[in-house]
Design a binder for these strands. Structure first.
Length: 270
DNA sequence: CGGACTCCCTGCCGGC
DNA sequence: TGCCGGCAGGGAGTCC
């Protein structure tokens, strides 16, 4: 169930265990993901040494000297390290076997993907037009303000547009809008500069806090129990439609906006 | 171009 | 109990 913090947690969790190791084998049990898994994946990877693991938006990048493997976890994907020979479970679609450790891709809904990009991964078509990373200084209130000018779209789908900023999914869009006191259905173009400053700060805050908490379950995660790294009980609005607002106790309103569940407080968010 | 909508897929939950 | 519709955290592709 990956949003940016889960992808970041995965990145940090797997990196120390596989960086510098050689790929020994690739097993593709189910090549039909969001896009077909490249048929030549074994030829591309076996024998290559992994230089490092990084993240761009919700894409994980396994970097080799010749290029990068881009992995997206979709809605239901996860990566785990398992011991060589561990029996695959249902929906364990792909193994990347390193010396001593197997990186196993699991994805019931198969909305995830794997792509190979020679050379600089940033040139891949899926990454080329992505907006800034939310936790980097390049993304700030001024950026949001400039990008939102004259946009008629509601602010929530605007925030979830990966060309505006990457990594803000449905959960964190709801949370950040609540914390910033901004109604999700407001037109992006109606936001004031101060609105945008608040919004950018709360996006950074909620994502960073979630990453910090994901870190607390890293050991379990790497050990293979796959515990998700975010804490549902800390969410202020997402999943709480009809329940009292944590600030004013008015029941939270739940609507559909751009085909996604949206929860907000009609009193605290304007 | 912006913005709304569709679809990829399995699992699960609530209603009947 | 079983079946069925609807919904789930993403996001590319299509159409207007």
């Amino acid at each position: 169930m990956p949003e940016l913090p889960e992808v970041e947690t995965t990145c940090r969790g797997i990196a120390p265990h596989i960086t510098g190791r050689k790929v020994k084998a690739i097993v593709v049990r189910q090549p039909s993901l969001r896009w077909p898994v490249p048929a030549d994946l074994p030829a591309l990877l076996v024998g290559r040494k992994l230089h490092g693991v990084s993240r761009r938006g919700k894409y994980l990048l396994l970097g080799f000297s010749e290029g990068s493997l881009l992995i997206h976890l979709g809605m239901s994907g996860s990566l785990r390290l398992v011991a060589p020979g561990a029996p695959p479970q249902l929906h364990d679609h792909i193994d990347i076997a390193f010396s001593g450790r197997v990186l196993r891709y699991h994805d019931p809904r198969r909305f995830g993907s794997m792509h190979w990009q020679p050379g600089d991964p940033a040139e891949h078509f899926l990454l080329a037009s992505l907006g800034p990373e939310p936790l980097e200084p390049l993304f700030d209130g001024e950026w949001l303000f400039q990008r939102s000018r004259k946009r008629q779209q509601a602010v929530k789908p605007f925030l979830m547009d990966s060309k505006v900023v990457v990594g803000v999914g449905n959960i964190y869009a709801n949370e950040a809008l609540f914390m910033a006191g901004i109604k999700p259905i407001r037109k992006a173009g109606s936001l004031t500069r101060n609105n945008c400053l608040a919004l950018a700060e709360h996006i950074k805050f909620v994502l960073q806090r979630s990453i910090d908490q994901g870190g607390t379950t890293l050991r379990d995660f790497v050990g293979g129990d796959g515990k998700p790294g975010y804490f549902k009980q800390q969410l202020l609005v997402y999943g709480r439609g009809g329940e009292p607002c944590t600030v004013c106790a008015l029941p939270l309103k739940e609507i559909r906006l751009g085909q996604r569940t949206t929860v907000y407080c009609t009193r605290c968010q304007r």
